[in-house]
Design a protein around this nucleic acid. Structure first.
Length: 276
DNA sequence: TAAGTCAATGAGATGA
DNA sequence: TCATCTCATTGACTTA
């Protein structure tokens, strides 16, 4: 299955635009050395392809360093070509098989800009329009690699379409999704952390309160002087009604608890939940 | 200028 | 084997 087959599935993404890309109808004028297997298509660089086969309006890509007109392309060719290395390791179906127009343009610009010898990595900054479109797509699908084959084709098309629409490489779209997922996860982790902190504080406070309560129960001289005369083992308290049993002449019931043994609801009869 | 942001990279894991 | 993932990290760029 070639790129044409993938793109002509008849499936339309709900991204606010639909692609009718028909690569068969594209005029190929400039061969690209070293890219793309033989699929009957000759990988090439041509500017007419970008604007000529779309149902949505799009500014034509200008391969010049001063084109700043279209918002989506404000970063223009230079920005899209920042990922010089990423283009090298591009593994996307479309790009591998036919090389997208974007990559062709990027490759062209890369060679143009590499003429000065600077091979330093530059920072790509996505425009607001690009980010908005990516966010919109992310809301629909946060991943580009679903398990199902049919979705796989859809996502491939989504990536290709997004890349073309944004004048980015498919690899850049892929990286954006990866980083976006990472940020989402980080944000969720921070939220979870805050929640756990609050839980910890609540439990600490509860523990402090229970300790205080226990100390009061353990010091019955003032509150319950009568109970001090009884052996500790016979002092029991119901966890539900907090009544103390096991007094003189009273055998501990099966619902009674020995406060001298455990601070919290210990039942010598293994029945702590029984009601009084 | 330090700190923060974020695109990009590389290693290793995973599933088809 | 390949495409994509997560994760950790880098480094260009922005901001306070």
């Amino acid at each position: 299955m070639g790129f044409d087959d993938i793109c002509n599935t008849g499936l339309v993404l709900g991204l606010g635009f639909s692609s009718t890309a028909d690569h068969k109808s594209k005029k190929i004028t400039t061969p690209l050395v070293g890219k793309g297997p033989s699929l009957g298509l000759e990988p090439s660089l041509t500017l007419s392809l970008i604007s000529g086969d779309r149902t949505y309006e799009q500014q034509p890509i200008k391969i010049s360093k001063d084109h700043q007109s279209a918002d989506l392309y404000r970063q223009d060719s230079a920005a899209s070509s920042y990922s010089n290395a990423s283009v090298k390791r591009e593994r996307d179906v479309g790009s591998e098989e036919t090389t997208t127009e974007v990559e062709r343009v990027s490759s062209r610009v890369i060679s143009d800009e590499d003429d000065d010898g600077s091979n330093a990595r530059k920072k790509l900054r996505l425009t607001k329009a690009q980010s908005a479109l990516l966010e919109e797509s992310f809301k629909i699908h946060s991943t580009l690699n679903p398990a199902l084959t049919i979705n796989f084709l859809i996502m491939q098309k989504q990536k290709q379409d997004l890349a073309r629409e944004l004048n980015l490489t498919p690899r850049q779209v892929e990286v954006w999704f990866q980083n976006r997922r990472a940020r989402t996860k980080l944000k969720q982790t921070e939220v979870d952390c805050e929640f756990l902190k609050k839980c910890c504080e609540t439990l600490t406070e509860e523990n402090r309160r229970l300790h205080k309560e226990l100390q009061e129960l353990k010091a019955p001289k003032i509150a319950h002087p009568l109970y001090m005369q009884l052996p500790a083992a016979t002092l029991t308290m119901c966890p539900s009604c907090e009544r103390i049993g096991g007094g003189v002449g009273e055998t501990p019931s099966k619902n009674a608890f020995t406060i001298a043994q455990k601070p919290h609801f210990y039942s010598p009869f293994n029945n702590p939940s029984a009601a009084c």
